[in-house]
Design a protein around this nucleic acid. Structure first.
Lengths: 220, 220
DNA sequence: CCGCATCCGGGGCGATACTG
DNA sequence: CAGTATCGCCCCGGATGCGG
């Protein structure tokens, strides 16, 4: 799209990241890390293939993403966020929080549903988090798909990685609709409420309450 | 624009607020409060008049803005943010922070420059803030225009109001280009550096350092 | 004047088909 | 697997008109 031609921080940001699909491409790369073109298409249902190619080129020119070849034996081109692109996490965080309001009615008939979107929302909005120095793995089985989220304590907040596939060793496993998984991870529903609505929680170590509860801050 | 049809919090947010101009309209209303159609046009150079009308209608339907008649004697329709619209402040904050990176080169030849954009960026990114219970008024004379920012301590962070026109009683006055005003308010430049580059600061009470410096937090 | 509605040209977007 | 090519359509941008 065209520039707004306004010397304003918001307008400049939107000049770069305001085009259609761009922030959703960032969402995919932020959630799943370096991804192949085809994987991006999977996570962006509805995008036209020429648009994805064009956006990736534009984002590369803007310094948001970079392409590099995957190490052998799997020869493939991967797209990953640059540091500058990863700094859009704050924007994604704010959009995620604001958009949660409209999620409670559940998906429309036309809506695509992919669990890693809920996982990302959960990772970004998590009220608590793992204890410093430790790692928590959340397994998710949803929409006939499996993935796992590795949560870690970082210098500024929580770091996370979301991977497709089953977790080698999950501390807690959530089984149910993407809507329920998202609701409990983002704190919209308490674990008990979510279970009441059909979510299955396998949490032998009782780590989930510490993740979705209020952070244990010493102040106040 | 069309919906993404993805059951994802980010996509849902962009379905509502992702259309071109929408977040800039929110910027205007967040910065200057309830505004008339014509005032919005002033703050949104480049927008087509039919688009502004259409967007306002759509945003009203989405519950972001509401229209109401100004009290007599000045008969005019005012547009203002709803609570839901005002909650987009977090998104604007994140976009402002991210977009600051591209501001240092200064405005292009084609760029419109309006000081209240810098004032908003400053109000959102202010590192410090007024002491609790007090109010600070920052006068700004920039681009041949005058405005003032009233800063107040709020429950969660800083509250602010930006008004066009000179301040009745400014605690500190900044005179210079919008770029320099913005840079010092957002912490990109220290007051001393900004003065070195041509900004004039009238600050008899020495309140500016407390505004743009690190907040006086008891921790650490 | 203020708050739009209408008309028109160009281009970005969305879908499909096709290729190295 | 990773795109390019092509083609409508509709949205955006700019100008103008017009009622209150």
């Amino acid at each position: 799209m065209k520039s707004y031609h306004q010397y304003c921080s918001v307008a400049r940001a939107l000049d770069v990241a305001g085009d259609r699909w761009v922030l959703l491409i960032v969402r995919e790369l932020l959630a799943l890390g370096p991804s192949r073109y085809t994987d991006l298409r999977r996570g962006l249902p509805g995008i036209a293939t020429n648009l994805l190619a064009e956006r990736l080129k534009a984002m590369e020119a803007e310094g948001l993403v970079e392409r590099h070849d995957a190490p052998p034996p799997v020869s493939a081109t991967l797209f990953r966020l640059t540091d500058r692109g990863r700094e859009l996490r704050g924007v994604l965080h704010a959009l995620t929080a604001w958009g949660m309001e409209g999620m409670t009615p559940g998906p429309d008939a036309q809506d695509a549903v992919q669990p890693h979107w809920s996982a990302l929302a959960g990772a970004l909005l998590l009220r608590g988090g793992p204890d410093p120095g430790t790692e928590v793995v959340v397994g998710i089985a949803s929409e006939g798909e499996m993935l796992h989220v590795v949560l870690r304590r970082d210098a500024d907040g929580n770091a996370f990685e979301i991977r497709r596939g089953a977790a080698p060793a999950a501390d807690v496993t959530l089984t149910g609709t993407s809507m329920l998984v998202g609701a409990v991870l983002t704190g919209v529903l308490s674990p008990a409420e979510a279970v009441g609505q059909g979510l299955r929680i396998d949490d032998p170590g009782q780590v989930l309450p510490g993740l979705v509860g209020a952070p244990a801050e010493p102040s106040a």
